[in-house]
Computed example of a mutant assay.
Amino acid sequence: MTPVPRRLWLTSAALAALAPARLLAQKKSELPLPALGSAVPLAPAPLLLGGEFQPAQAEGKALVLYWWASWCPFCAQQSPEMQKLWESQQGKGLQMLALSIDKTPEPAVAYLRKKGYTFPAAWLSPELAKVYPKPEGLPVTVVRGKDGRVAQAEKGQLFPEDVAQLAKWI
């Protein structure tokens, strides 16, 4: 067995000691990305800026599911690109449901208003999380294809060209 270099061991031990217990517990409970080709069930979702997402809206259309948070720096980089995608593709058959994982809906609403985002966004309440469980990572982007199955699944920040490429699923 190869010994672990002392510096690596000390770094790992220090990081583990600094990690809050709730983050470690959260990691254990988070799900992997959904498998390509797996079915994506839908449910109605009240939207943060008014209205409601209805599953019928996504029938026969591509649906982008986007888990994000108002406090996430990577989401702050990706969200403007998601807004551009929404503005350019909503009339062409693309549907979107952004799911805020903020602890309460108020910060998410304030963030959407401050940034001027109009993409459909809901707060991931405990009830809604039963239908739309958040995969590990943040942000997370999953494309539900026209057939209702996962066509693409990504965790972590997508770059502008990657977000623009989501339109290929229309």
Rank of each mutant, 00 (worst) to 15 (best):
L42A: 12
P44C: 13
P44D: 15
A45W: 04
P46D: 14
L49T: 13
L49P: 08
G50L: 09
G50V: 11
E52T: 15
E52W: 10
F53N: 11
F53R: 09
A56S: 15
Q57M: 15
Q57G: 04
A58N: 14
A58M: 14
A58I: 14
E59K: 15
G60H: 13
G60C: 13
A62F: 10
L63N: 09
L63C: 07
L63A: 04
L63V: 12
V64I: 11
L65K: 02
L65H: 02
W67E: 02
A69I: 06
A69L: 07
A69M: 03
F74V: 04
A76F: 02
A76H: 05
Q77M: 13
Q78K: 11
P80Q: 05
P80C: 07
P80G: 06
P80D: 03
E81D: 14
E81P: 08
E81N: 12
E81F: 03
M82W: 05
M82I: 15
K84W: 00
L85K: 07
W86D: 01
E87G: 06
E87F: 00
S88P: 11
Q89E: 14
Q90L: 00
G91N: 03
G91Q: 04
K92R: 15
L94M: 15
Q95V: 13
L97N: 11
L97G: 08
A98Q: 07
L99H: 10
S100K: 11
D102K: 02
T104K: 13
T104P: 02
P105D: 09
P105A: 08
P105T: 06
V109S: 05
Y111F: 14
R113G: 01
R113T: 11
Y117V: 06
T118D: 03
T118R: 04
F119I: 05
P120R: 03
A122M: 06
A122C: 11
W123C: 03
W123E: 04
S125K: 11
S125E: 05
S125N: 07
P126R: 10
P126E: 03
E127F: 00
E127D: 14
Y132P: 11
P133R: 11
K134V: 06
P135Q: 08
E136R: 15
G137R: 07
V140T: 04
T141M: 00
V142P: 02
G145W: 12
K146N: 13
